[in-house]
């Protein structure tokens, strides 16, 4: 009896410590983004939206946000175009070649992003390609492709290959089969994977840092502002990005549930 009680107290303490460790820094950032005082130290001196207004009015941050958004959207589109056929190949074909291909695709997941960023920059410079938003986008595609390919191939594997055969047998051309059967069945997984890539691209720092050239992305701009200490505007941007990320996670989670449901019946 005592033993059980002790275990429960220990367990609760452990959980509390874990949550504190995980979320206290985030809570501090969010709380001080709304603090009128302007220095991220207690006590809290009344709520304000001043810092958020400052962020939204800052031309440097505006430019960086626009860059981030452009890079993220282009990365998602390229990942879908490149990754969808790769996902089908991994899910539907088998053999040593396909396994090697899957391994190569997954490489950027296992390599440190620092290494990816630096080597990519070295490659661009040896090829004489000037660094720009586009070279950074190439880096983003490289690093995010595995997320898309493996999320999607998992879904494709769960779809009965006989569905496509049945559609063909009922007179559908390969294009009609893809549009009417395959695409609706992988749609939610595709959206899910696309959002993961979007979120990752918006947060990405290292690869952008080495390959962006003159411009900067939102995380780079934040890093730039941090050199003068943690300003309340940094807290405000971080809060905005946190909100965006949580939103994406929620949507992905919701889509993931739908995809799982579809997988069961498919």
């Amino acid at each position: 009896m005592n033993h059980g009680l002790l275990a429960r107290i220990l367990y609760a303490t452990y959980l509390a410590a874990l949550f504190l460790f995980l979320f206290a820094p985030i809570a501090v950032v969010v709380v001080f983004a709304f603090d009128a005082k302007g220095i991220a130290t207690p006590p809290f001196e009344g709520p304000t939206l001043r810092w958020f207004r400052a962020v939204l009015a800052d031309p440097v941050l505006q430019q960086a946000a626009a860059n981030s958004a452009k890079i993220a959207v282009i990365t998602v589109i390229l990942c879908i175009l490149i990754g969808t056929p790769a996902a089908f190949a991994i899910a539907r074909l088998n053999g040593r070649g396909v396994r090697a291909f899957a391994l190569v695709i997954s490489m950027p997941l296992m390599l440190p992003t620092l290494l990816v960023g630096v080597t990519l920059m070295a490659m661009f410079s040896s090829l004489g390609v000037g660094l720009s938003m586009w070279t950074a986008t190439v880096g983003h595609v490289l690093v995010t492709l595995p997320f898309l390919v493996f999320t999607l191939s998992a879904r494709i594997t769960s779809i009965d290959p006989q569905l496509a055969e049945a559609a063909a047998n009922l007179g559908a051309t390969p294009a009609q089969t893809f549009r009417r059967i395959t695409l609706p069945l992988i749609g939610s997984a595709l959206a899910c994977a696309g959002l993961l890539v979007l979120g990752w691209s918006i947060d990405e720092f290292t690869v952008s840092f080495f390959n962006m050239g003159g411009g900067s992305t939102l995380p780079m701009a934040i890093w730039g502002q941090m050199r003068g200490g943690v300003s309340p505007t940094v807290n405000a941007i971080s809060t905005i990005m946190l909100g965006l990320t949580v939103f994406i996670i929620l949507v992905v989670h919701r889509l993931g549930n739908i995809a799982a449901l579809g997988g069961k019946t498919g």
């Binding site: 009965d160 006989q162 569905l163 055969e165 049945a166 559609a167 063909a168 047998n169 009922l170 007179g171 559908a172 051309t173 059967i181 609706p184 069945l185 579809g262 019946t265 498919g266």
Partner: peptide
């Protein structure tokens, strides 16, 4: 000829109904 051009209908063992 391609399967969609053949005048035969196939009932699959596991039916292969379209789940969506």
């Amino acid at each position: 000829s391609a399967p969609n051009r053949r005048p035969v209908g196939l009932v699959f063992q596991r039916y292969a109904l379209f789940p969506h």
